[in-house]
């Protein structure tokens, strides 16, 4: 059974005039799969991602995460969210805490781990993302790339089954993009289920098992990257790819 099942979801923002962000999106994602979502800005790809851990409430359809219907108001959304890590474009580290505290807070409050257990897990993950020596630093003392790696480690500390990435490299200086993508590649290789919204076509081509192309709130085309980047079927996809691959 797919670990993520999305059926006919729709979402409209009222600002206050109604703006349909998603209309009738359905997709299945298997455990261990890395799915990259691309598309022009305003196409609904971030909204789609944020629906998967209910940061946005899809108003129609069903979303099953590991078999649990998260649009059911009675579901324990906090328990689901602990299983679904999320990495944001703007890192969103907690500025009033050290790196270590950023990683241990939720482990202790949600996973009920002891201080020592949480710190041990945190240090192992900081080691993995290559910034173990900065565990006592404040987020503001780190570079953008380091902050984003801490943010990834913070999500991983909950031992989630799924990781969502919302344009994780868009706010980074170009020379720091690589270090974050490297961490994500490792994760993908280790079999983490990942949904990544990104503009990094190189990453999509190299790491993705499947690429979704979204436009105007729908998934226009999907397929494995080799097919997707070489022989896109939909004219809108062709146009988009020709625009960003022109450079």
């Amino acid at each position: 059974m797919p670990i993520i099942q999305v059926r006919n979801i729709a979402k409209t923002f009222y600002l206050p005039q109604p703006i349909p962000a998603l209309r009738d999106v359905s997709v299945d994602i298997e455990a261990g799969e890395t799915v990259v979502v691309i598309g022009p800005s305003g196409s609904g790809k971030s909204t789609f991602l944020r629906c998967l851990n209910r940061l946005e409430y899809a108003e129609k359809g069903t979303i099953l995460i590991d078999g649990v219907d998260i649009l059911d108001p009675r579901c324990d959304i906090n328990a689901i969210r602990a299983e679904v890590g999320m990495v944001f474009q703007s890192f969103n580290l907690f500025p009033h805490m050290t790196v270590l505290e950023n990683l241990t807070l939720a482990q202790r409050a949600v996973r009920k781990r002891s201080r020592a257990q949480a710190a041990e897990r945190a240090m192992a993950l900081l080691q993995k993302v290559g910034i173990a020596d900065k565990y006592q630093a404040r987020p503001e003392q780190l570079s953008g790339g380091q902050q984003q790696r801490v943010a990834i480690a913070r999500s991983l500390a909950m031992d989630p089954k799924i990781m969502l990435f919302d344009e994780p490299t868009s706010a980074l200086d170009p020379e720091m993009v690589g270090e974050v993508l490297d961490v994500m590649k490792t994760l993908s290789r280790e079999g983490m289920t990942m949904v990544v919204v990104t503009h990094e076509m190189g990453f999509a081509r190299e790491v993705a098992d499947r690429v979704l192309f979204m436009d105007q709130g729908t998934i226009l085309e999907e397929g494995p990257p080799e097919h997707f980047f070489t022989a896109p079927k939909h004219p809108r996809t062709q146009e988009f790819l020709s625009q960003i691959l022109a450079f």
């Binding site: 944001f88 969103n92 907690f94 807070l105 909950m158």
Partner: peptide, 26 residues
Amino acid sequence: HRGQMEAARSLGLTYTQAMARIILPQ
């Protein structure tokens, strides 16, 4: 910044926990 609440909730913290540990101290 609203991203702070989103980050806290995305980790599975409840509203009260996020408010007490993340938002109010800032």
